[in-house]
């Protein structure tokens, strides 16, 4: 009865596949000594990106249903139609096509996919195209970047505008690997690279933007709770890629945002440790 064994093996794909996902998503249980909590998306501190998490869950639910149907059919087919010594001599069905079936399994997935495509456009636009605005003198104006972050092998340089309130002037203040942003209001950053490609990424805020030498880009987000976040590099930038990171502090009063910064050359920060490896 080997065919039963294979059918059971294939039935494990939907059972374990969906089962583990559900356990991970609700954050409970353990499997073979490994805890399944803390395996889903990390906590999201960015209200702009709540919709990203929503999409993540929605697509997983849709895909989970499709996975369940198709792989269960696969396991059933092996269970029911496998040839084995005890099987009757019923012949395989001589069926070559069915136009109605083809239409059904083309049209339904097409409708779902097209829906997903258009449904997510707004989320994409909110996070990548429509820079947050503020009211200035009674009319809306795109928020100017509060700091410039420059990626280089292997760390991040943060520049704040000095007393003149403008970036790119001689009174800019620089600090390495430490960014401080205010809590509860939109933050716009200018991101650049000095040598090779890097990627400015904060998983806890769902922010990611490759920084390209020769290009200037903007990222925006909002942090709702005070705390510390890790800024990681997510584009291969050389041997030290794995340790290229900075710390972002979200503080509750805006006045603190620029205090503590001076013309610091290089504080002994995270990216230096372990450099001998």
């Amino acid at each position: 009865m080997m065919h039963r064994f294979w059918a059971i093996l294939f039935s494990l794909v939907p059972i374990l596949g969906i089962g583990l996902y559900v356990l991970a998503a609700v954050g409970k249980g353990s499997f073979g000594g490994f805890s399944l909590s803390g395996l889903w998306l990390p906590e999201n501190g960015n209200p702009y990106a709540v919709t990203i998490d929503h999409l993540f869950d929605l697509v997983h639910i849709i895909c989970g249903v499709v996975l369940g149907i198709t792989t269960s059919v696969l396991a059933y087919v092996v269970w029911r139609y496998a040839d084995h010594p005890g099987r009757n001599n019923e012949a395989a069905q001589y069926v070559k096509h069915n136009t109605l079936l083809e239409w059904i399994w083309t049209a339904i997935p097409a409708a779902i996919l097209i829906f997903l495509g258009f449904y997510q456009l707004q989320v994409w636009a909110d996070n990548k195209m429509n820079r947050p605005t503020e009211m200035v003198d009674g009319h809306k104006q795109a928020i100017e970047p509060m700091a410039l972050v420059v990626g280089k092998q292997f760390g991040w340089e943060v520049y704040y505008p000095g007393t003149d309130g403008r970036l790119g002037t001689s009174d800019d203040q620089r600090i390495e690997n430490e960014l401080t942003v205010p809590v509860g209001k939109p933050v716009v950053l200018r991101v650049e690279a000095q040598d090779v490609l890097h990627s400015f990424s904060i998983p806890g805020l769902r922010v990611k933007q490759d920084v390209v030498p020769g290009m200037t880009q903007l990222v925006w987000f909002q942090v709702d709770k005070p705390g510390t976040y890790e800024i990681l590099c997510m584009e291969l930038c050389g041997w030290g890629h794995y340790k290229m990171r900075a710390r972002m502090k979200a503080v509750s009063t805006t006045s603190e945002a620029t205090t503590g910064t001076e013309q610091v050359a290089s504080p002994p920060s995270l990216s230096q440790e372990g450099g001998e490896n």
Binding site: H3, T70, V73, L74, V77, V78, Y81, A82, D83, R87, E90, A91, A92, Q93, V95, N98, L101
Partner: peptide, 9 residues
Amino acid sequence: LATLWGGRL
């Protein structure tokens, strides 16, 4: 899957 369905695998 439809090819497998009703076959003699």
